[in-house]
Nucleic acid binder design. Sequence first.
DNA 1: ATCATCCATTTTGCATTCATTTTTTGTCAT
DNA 2: ATGACAAAAAATGAATGCAAAATGGATGAT
Lengths: 245, 245
Amino acid sequence: MKSTIPDNGVPITPPTANGGDREAASLHGEILLRLRDYVVEGNIPDGARVPERQLCELFGISRTPLREALKVLAAEGLIELLPNRGARVRQLSQRDLEELFDVMAGLESLAGRLACEAITDKEVIAIEQLHYEMYGHYLHRDMHGYFQTNQRIHESIVAAARNETLKTAYANFAGRIRRVRYSANFARKRQRWAEAMREHEAILDALRRRAASELSDILFQHLRNKRTAAIEHLTEPQEDAPAAP
Amino acid sequence: MKSTIPDNGVPITPPTANGGDREAASLHGEILLRLRDYVVEGNIPDGARVPERQLCELFGISRTPLREALKVLAAEGLIELLPNRGARVRQLSQRDLEELFDVMAGLESLAGRLACEAITDKEVIAIEQLHYEMYGHYLHRDMHGYFQTNQRIHESIVAAARNETLKTAYANFAGRIRRVRYSANFARKRQRWAEAMREHEAILDALRRRAASELSDILFQHLRNKRTAAIEHLTEPQEDAPAAP
DNA sequence: ATCATCCATTTTGCATTCATTTTTTGTCAT
DNA sequence: ATGACAAAAAATGAATGCAAAATGGATGAT
């Protein structure tokens, strides 16, 4: 007789679409991670077909695990599956991007709200540190450093929300956008940069006061503005380098 | 020479994990839909292993497409993959449920915000209609009807957000929760029911005024309260049937 | 009786094979 | 040359095969 009592093995495969952790016990899991990076990093042009056989050679595997990974990437929205015509890299329309940014904004807005309930003083201080670091990058017009620190701040807020489900979803959507960022590097307008700094001040302030609703609002607006800048950048490609305040 | 110019075929496979639309050109897509339903409807007990071979017989297919579907369901978070031990239905801890509810709350909060930007008067009126209908169910203590209408209201709000990406993500998370709901039927406390009605009044009011931030707040709080009720229900199983106001 | 060990059976993971469909190439008529 | 058509080649999607691992049960020691 077969028992339906759950066994207590440890799940190795990520519980949900997962770009963060670098674990992989099975071949298909390993391939999933590698292929996702491969696509996100833009090794296949937008809208181009995913060369199944070539990738098999590249990774040194058979088609079965690769195809399994493709199905997952399709579910994540990174690629599309065409009936009898394999997979192709999903080309995001401007509308798609707007939608993605809005969802990201919603998730971060949520993260801020939850963070207010759970964040420790120590964590707030750490974010303050990052904020000043970022301000330094801003003053030195170091865009790369600025972006990196900016991202760390947003990640810190998501981490402070104490919600793994949210974190995973956030990582998933971030991955989809990152792919676009690789091809078209988002340069911000000077004006927008100063604005963003001010918004970050407000974020920090609301976080200090644990003002959940307020933080939620500010974060959404902040991401919304980012969205506008990004979309504008896509339509009229180049923009001036940022200058000091 | 191979061209990298995108061909213009029509993608049939859902762009992301998709429980809503009933399309499927490929076998694995068909199986994905059927298997997802099969799991969500609770045909396999919590934490039990997913019998690969049996399901193949049930669906009349070979293992390959089934295994592909399993990988996707794992990515969606409905099942877990154990290395060399197949798949098992993911058992959600109380913490997992709390997280899921919070993410749902965040998504609906976002939906409300976006809806305020895009919703038409006609749509608002339609939601008002649903609201009165729901009130009728409330007065008649028709819990089933109440739930159904309630769900339609929330879906209407999500639809009014005009964001397919959001809608898809919402459906995905809703599916994960629905599985739990099948096993433990969420009965609400009488007091909570009256409260929920009041909250819905406020939701409708904010929606009429297109008060984005306010609606966002109310929706989050509304879902938060739902969460509390649901979790309480899980720990102390049964509760009284709702009475008239 | 309880527990550990070994072996048969089953299951899993991946590679390989096979039937279709699509894509490319080649031919011919205009 | 250009286009239509047909055949060859390649690809996709699914089924099958095979080695490795896990499971279950029998055996034997304590």
